[in-house]
Nucleic acid binder design. Structure first.
Lengths: 123, 123, 123, 123
DNA sequence: GTGGTCTAGACCACA
DNA sequence: GTGGTCTAGACCACT
């Protein structure tokens, strides 16, 4: 997982999506132990508070679970349990962006093309 | 155009996309005069400075022109003159967001569907 | 002389340079009578106050002279009487602009080329 | 960098060109951290909002990046990626100014001289 | 500590 | 009347 130090996206959000990505890709499996807050902070050269914040959010989203004195673990990946609120939020932001590029002169086909080629590359 | 006072999206950004949308939909035409800063502020019950900020951003994006002492006008939308740099930036941000929702469990079809229905609504 | 209604340059300044331009090109000769404030305002569809302001500035710069009850006339074109203050101001603004395009990646040669071709075209 | 409090040029614009100049001269290097908004405000005895405004413009021009909670940094100056649109705009404004000084009695040689000596000074 | 947003209110230039 | 600049001061999000 890479943290982009010059991105306008907050570190803690980058951490969150990074961890989710790792789970999605299978790099992190159910029951796997995550690095401790301090370790993770060292790895990415960031403030432990920032890592802590990310873990708290992930816990509130039922993605990980923290056991006092033992550490933090990946929860069973309940795929059916989509966070619709989160999705809705992202959907709106995405449509805003579509609006933006449309205004810049990009047509629907072109956008769909971007997405298609993105998913092809990912395979 | 509606300003959502409880949204986390700043007022001035809401104004910006609202105005762009109005132009895109043809509600605002080239050369049309926008409400004055003070009027717009009154309409949406916000501070003139906030409106001014939105207008300035739109001007820097070549969407409107503002002439001191006279007002603010919609600029000709020079679609042939695509700002590839700007498009590239937005394209990247868009793909980041796609990545994001993908990890939230959304499939490619679903995303393509969102976009399709967005463009259908516009017609 | 053309007044650009959507330029960010104030009308009265456009008028001033327009008149100076006409004098420089010989369209307006020494002792020629300028249109009255009201006429000029009608011609360019602007407020008489705006024309009046331009005339006042030109008068203070010794370019024209107003005779009460008779009208406004072009003064003897005293070429040696360069308005150094005005030139200095423009010189600074020009260098600021050079700084700007330099920052955008334009080299000295290219800029000198622009200017050269500008003067060639004018001949 | 000096801010001229009596100049008609707005503070924030003076700041913008001052910072660009520092970058161009190498005083500020890629990835360097700029003084914080509040520090910069203190240094030049101005309101933090004014500094903030300058930083925002510079960010929209891709000159700096600002990361919430961390500060503002000089971006890599991607010279190969010339923004032709922006250059075109400045070129027109520059030629307008040339026209202006020409009517004030300045000759082509003199203008070319200004530019030449500007670049010589920079070395 | 960092920057971002918003308000309120003053003063100026232009039409 | 229009927009532009600047200040002072409040509150919020992120590190």
């Amino acid at each position: 997982m890479q943290i982009n130090k010059t991105s306008s996206k907050p570190f803690y959000e980058q951490l969150i999506s990074g961890i989710k990505e790792d789970i999605f890709k299978g790099i992190l499996q159910t029951e796997d132990k995550l690095p401790s807050v301090r370790e993770m902070a060292k790895i990415h050269e960031m403030n432990p508070n920032t890592v802590s914040k990310a873990y708290k959010v992930l816990e509130s989203q039922d993605v990980i679970v923290t056991v006092k004195g033992r550490g933090t673990y990946v929860k069973a990946n309940n795929e059916s349990n989509r966070d619709e609120r989160q999705i809705q939020k992202n959907r709106e932001a995405l449509l805003d962006m579509i609006k933006e590029v449309t205004y810049l002169g990009v047509q629907e086909d072109e956008i769909q093309g971007w997405i298609k080629s993105y998913f092809e590359k990912e395979d």
